[in-house]
């Protein structure tokens, strides 16, 4: 449907577009490369950083993960030294903990990084409490059912999943993974994200569904969050196969929430010429990237 509209618009643009001129790149905003520091910290694992250098949007060069052993990263918990990170080489070099200490919920963390040639960057964030799945109930409904020649019911089905979350933190991201089985076999397909809407039953919450993920910024102060997922539309042929579902809940700091949401928007809209621009949020001083606290909860259910 939307392709028809885009085609129409492009047709007319094409008809009337007959003049182009190459602009001097100098006329555009200049870019000086800065250090990009990316780290999501959780209570389940140690601090890990990926460092790279930003480029101009019209730069041809690919991104490279930086691996200087002369760079150092120091972590502070509530302004007290907590850990120092060193480069672990390999194909995708990361800067990892030297102490194996993990972050604790409801504490503030700060990092400082000095990278040769790119200067010093820093960032600060907190680790929110995790949000747990209190209840989850799954069932499916068959619509437009009919009996086939073998007198077996066939039809379209919808999977329904009612989820109740505890709300310890106002910034949540929820998505659902499905691990179904190939028809008539016991081989799982592996957990894959489901691409249909999840609805927040409390309309007072601010929610946005982007690229198969539901972002909830709960300004209403509701204690529990009830979600409804009516999805996974399919055709029942003879018999619907049972599937395993994993409900993934990210309990995010505001900085992490903004970063993830805006990143999803940018990726989702990269092929949509009619979408509004989405600037990335950035909590790295003198650089780019994210230093954000996220606690992840997984909840498995089969039906």
């Amino acid at each position: 449907m939307k392709n028809l509209f885009i085609l129409t618009a492009l047709l007319f643009t094409f008809i009337f577009t007959s003049c182009e001129k190459t602009e001097k790149v100098d006329n555009f905003p200049r870019h000086e490369g800065k250090l990009v520091a990316n780290c999501f910290f959780t209570s389940d694992s140690t601090f890990k950083f990926v460092l790279s250098k930003s480029l101009s949007p019209i730069d041809n060069a690919p991104f490279k993960q930086l691996n200087s052993t002369k760079a150092f990263i120091k972590i502070y918990e509530d302004n007290i030294f907590f850990d120092s990170l060193v480069c672990k080489g390999g194909l995708y070099p990361t800067y990892t903990s030297t102490t194996n200490r993990t972050a604790s919920a409801l504490h503030n963390y700060r990092f400082e990084c000095n990278y040769p040639g790119l200067g010093k960057v820093s960032g600060e964030d907190y680790l929110p409490d995790s949000s747990s799945v209190l209840k989850a109930k799954g069932y499916y409904t068959i619509l437009n059912s009919y009996y086939d020649n073998d007198s077996v019911i066939n039809g379209n089905y919808f999977t329904n999943l009612n989820i109740e979350l505890s709300n310890n933190n106002p910034y949540l991201m929820v998505f659902i993974q499905k691990n179904s089985y190939y028809q008539g076999s016991s081989y799982p397909t592996g957990y894959q994200e489901i691409y249909e809407d999840i609805t927040d039953l409390n309309s007072a919450n601010e929610t946005e569904y982007i690229a198969s993920r539901l972002y909830i910024s709960n300004s209403a102060g509701v204690k529990n969050i009830n979600l409804k997922w009516t999805t996974d539309y399919g055709i029942v042929y003879k018999k619907r196969t049972t599937a395993d579902y994993n409900i993934v809940v990210y309990s995010c700091s505001k900085a992490a929430f903004d970063y993830l949401k805006r990143q999803s928007l940018q990726w989702e809209n990269q092929d949509d010429p009619f979408s509004q621009p989405t600037p990335m949020s950035n909590n790295i001083v003198n650089g780019y990237g994210i230093f954000g606290g996220v606690n992840v909860t997984n909840y498995l259910i089969s039906f």
């Binding site: 870019h31 790279s52 930003s54 480029l55 780019y288």
Partner: peptide, 8 residues
């Protein structure tokens, strides 16, 4: 600016 995205 362009730089690599990241996820948890």
């Amino acid at each position: 600016a362009a730089y690599p995205g990241y996820s948890p």
